[in-house]
Design a binder for these strands. Structure first.
Lengths: 358, 358
DNA sequence: CTTAGCACTCCAATCTCCTGAGTGCTAATG
DNA sequence: CATTAGCACTCAGGAGATTGGAGTGCTAAG
């Protein structure tokens, strides 16, 4: 079912116009385009064919045509023309990209808000580890009054800490022993490699500090297993700007489905052949999103971390423009994170341990 | 302008009915109530008086009455009857209150979501320090490859950490010196008490580690100044369940105004005479909220921290029920936080080699 | 003071009508 | 034989017009 060049031209025109007007596109509107030199009647014939092929739909007999999901897909894969960001747009993207925070999660959250703002659609951002995390170093600090602080350094310059109230009283020597045991036995192992036997062995070697072991190891395992960083969702209500969601109940359905479960489980399904990827309408697994599209983008953060940013909107979205904008982010976000993370030489931008916890 | 008992009864009835139906209340509806034994004509007269006094409003001549903001205020202050939570409600509140996480911010976020879910309205949660924070202890750990980790223990059992890439190479001895200097000079001081002179003195005493000082102190000050924990907002879209926001543009206006700035600045205006407090319609400072009400509740977290949870909705909300539910949270959240914070002491780990549950 | 009764008001729901955009088909054209 | 002009037909959506009913305010009687 290959399309003739003219059919492609028409399909592309219909998507382009529909995306910007949100109104079904009629044959006349296309005939009026500058580079179209065939009549509206011809276009009507072609549109009938395209409808036949399932690439277009007709809301009702006397209305124009709108692209079907298959039409969008074809458009994205073959027809879409690169959108060149204007100078203004590039500038505003550039300016916005000056992330303020140096805290990692905070930065991801800002990225989500940013993308949402720049696309005027809901957006999400999430960081995930590319590799299994391992512990690099354990440190036990006494914090007075029967409690200690466990500082856990992970691969990829992550640092976690936890305040532990002591179940039994232990001496400084006990702590030193435990610390040594942990650092010899538990480092450089992934969560999967830490066996019950190993834990038992550690407990046996820990002497008087043995009661502490489960507290420490449980927290450690929790940290190692945590594959994803916090999930950040921003600008849900921007969906209301879209005419297809003028009906509140539809908007609610979609907005409510935008949670961590749905969105983190989406990406993995995809082939990986570019920084920007698309899920159009029914291609989405979640049925609440069957009339919506997701455009997502991955970028490299360094330190074995990978970021994912996505945008959710009606199937009728400006794929070309969004692709261009996400592409810009894809190129520059990595640098941004590196810069903030490695900037010890430049005073204001301090390096960063990951989370601070209480 | 004291009301007669009958007027009070009528006003209360109007609020109660309007809250549940969202329709203007007519004289007949009130006359039909079981404990009303005067006629609709009488009620009409009284309603005319109440309207005169500014406690009721009339959307148009031939419609029933709805409470004015002043009417709501009077209702809240004097007329509202305690709503007794049903057994089912209590149970579901109780069940929901089993916070999973032991991470502090995570818990606050859960509380926000919880309150939002239980009231079917947008909710926010935020923790703030009751007292100025001070540093209790500094610890510098070398993290290999030209970087160190600063572990900062604050008052109230807070612990923060930060990975610092070294701008110059320093020896272990240098670090020990710096650590000692910090622990003698910079502990037990609020952000305000840390003067430029003090910082200079510390730098001078730090020897070879001097270039590190600004990195450390800047982070420290940042931590000390931070008065509020993260701001958590949940369930914005629940606003769309309310009939007054069936019009998307109104909903957008309100939802968009629900940000940290607006909501953290709200509470401070209030008198403090109970755990649950109200801001009705125009009592809100922000003009976007002039047709909305905020109900908020503070609770004690311990460790010198205080939590605030609030709910945002149309002025027509079920103040009595929300008050009851927030009241329940107010009573029990404190305990909840204590329990989780001290969890290390209690359940999973028992002294004798008892294997902890997984 | 209370209430029955009545005239009056006005929203909102329903219906009808009409317009205009858009289609599909046919027949003419190069 | 692809293209196009022309035409009859369809249909969504907006503008009035109509109506029903809920609710009020006032008056006069109990």
């Amino acid at each position: 079912m290959d399309l003739t060049p003219r059919q492609k031209q028409i399909l592309r025109a219909i998507v382009d116009i529909y995306v910007s007007t949100a109104e079904p596109v009629g044959s006349k509107a296309i005939a009026a385009l500058p580079d179209v030199d065939f009549s509206s009647a011809t276009i009507r014939n072609e549109m009938a064919d395209l409808t036949q092929m399932g690439l277009l739909e007709q809301p009702h007999t006397s209305a124009g045509r709108i692209p079907s999901p298959a039409g969008y897909r074809l458009y994205i894969d073959e027809l879409m023309q690169d959108y060149r960001l204007s100078l203004d747009e590039t500038k505003s993207l550039h300016d916005a990209l000056q992330l303020k925070s140096q805290e990692f999660d905070e930065m991801m959250s800002q990225v989500g808000k940013l993308v949402s703002k720049m696309t005027d659609l809901p957006a999400y951002a999430i960081a995930s580890r590319q590799n299994q995390a391992v512990a690099k170093h354990f440190e036990l600090l006494s914090a007075g009054s029967g409690s200690i602080i466990l500082v856990l350094m992970l691969s990829g310059d992550e640092v976690k800490n936890k305040l532990i109230k002591l179940p039994v009283s232990v001496t400084d020597d006990d702590l030193r022993l435990l610390s040594a045991v942990l650092n010899t036995s538990m480092t450089d192992l992934t969560a999967g490699q830490i066996s019950a036997e190993l834990l038992e062995k550690v407990t046996r070697s820990a002497g008087a500090a043995a009661p502490l072991v489960p507290l420490v190891t449980e927290f450690t395992l929790e940290c190692l297993r945590q594959q994803h960083g916090d999930f950040h969702l921003a600008g849900q209500m921007r969906l209301l700007n879209q005419p297809e969601f003028r009906d509140v109940s539809k908007a609610r359905e979609v907005i409510e489905s935008l949670d961590e479960d749905v969105l983190t489980n989406l990406p993995t399904v995809l082939p990986k052949d570019g920084p920007v990827q698309f899920l159009v309408g029914p291609e989405n697994v979640a049925k609440e999103l069957k009339d919506s599209s997701v455009v997502m983008m991955r970028f490299d953060i360094g330190d074995g971390m990978q970021g994912t940013v996505g945008v959710v909107g009606p199937t009728r979205m400006d794929y070309a423009k969004i692709t261009a904008k996400l592409g810009y982010f894809a190129e520059n976000l990595g640098k941004m994170f590196q810069k903030n993370a490695g900037a010890a030489a430049a005073p204001p931008a301090l390096p960063d341990g990951m989370k601070s916890e209480k």
